[in-house]
Design a binder for these strands. Structure first.
Lengths: 133, 133
DNA sequence: GTAGTAGTGTTATAATATAACATAATTTTT
DNA sequence: AAAAATTATGTTATATTATAACACTACTAC
């Protein structure tokens, strides 16, 4: 069985549970302060759980904001091929699930003809909800 | 004249000069320690110069590694539309200049039909030079 | 049932980035 | 050219993000 379907440890469950409760991406230290009542006391416990959750495809890191968000797809098999749209007013990040773009990027070859193992794409703009205000 | 063609201040020149000397992306604190002999003493001086250089399109930030690299295009008019390939063995980052991909992303519309103001795309893989070794 | 791997708990510290304030230089407006 | 506005600088302190290192525990897998 490959890594992504392995079951989750206690700390991994606690951290994932908190991330899933949030619509928006959350910061590592915000996770920490919110799960201290569950017995997670120190940064390494959070970061280790995050590392594993990312490996398993349950969580993605939003690189441009050092934050973490749960993957919405049932069985994410692409922890290293993510596409987000990020609102620079409200900081919300939504995962974009566009097969055509996904394929385009997965198959993209650079000038030397090499294909890549993964990618991270972040689009920036104003989200629809912020446009209205 | 818009921002990107404005001339550079003293600190901006010092910081850009150091970044341009490096083939690979450099870290902010590496910039700092290397330009102290030029009279730049503290992190805010580096980060402020970086902010302006990014606005002016002279430098891009590689988000996944918190590092900074000079833009190779003569007059970068797209400081907020960048495409990199990053080698996870040697950490080198090369800017990808692919008109078709560039246009594809610039014109990409999400499921609601919205177009974005900018994007950052990072491809991950092993670079040709590391593949040989 | 013991060897290997993954997970936990903890302390300390490293690495990245910004707040806040005082001052100086430059540009724009009048 | 003086006043006003904007941009840049210098500095201290501190906030934020992330990992090293070590001791120990739990769970697989053979």
């Amino acid at each position: 069985m490959d890594n992504k379907n392995k079951s989750l440890s206690k700390n991994q469950k606690i951290v994932l549970d908190f991330i899933q409760k949030n619509k928006k991406p959350v910061k590592a230290y915000s996770i920490l302060s919110n799960v201290q009542k569950k017995g997670i006391n120190a940064p390494p416990q959070v970061y280790r759980a995050l590392d594993k959750l990312i490996e398993k495809g349950k969580v993605h890191k939003v690189e441009s904001q050092n934050s973490f968000v749960a993957c919405k797809m049932a069985n994410c098999d692409t922890p290293h091929a993510t596409i987000f749209s990020i609102c620079y007013e409200c900081d919300n990040a939504s995962e974009i699930n566009d097969t055509k773009l996904f394929n385009y990027l997965s198959e993209f070859k650079d000038s030397s003809g090499s294909i890549f193992d993964g990618y991270n794409l972040e689009f920036f703009g104003t989200c629809n909800s912020c446009k209205k205000n």
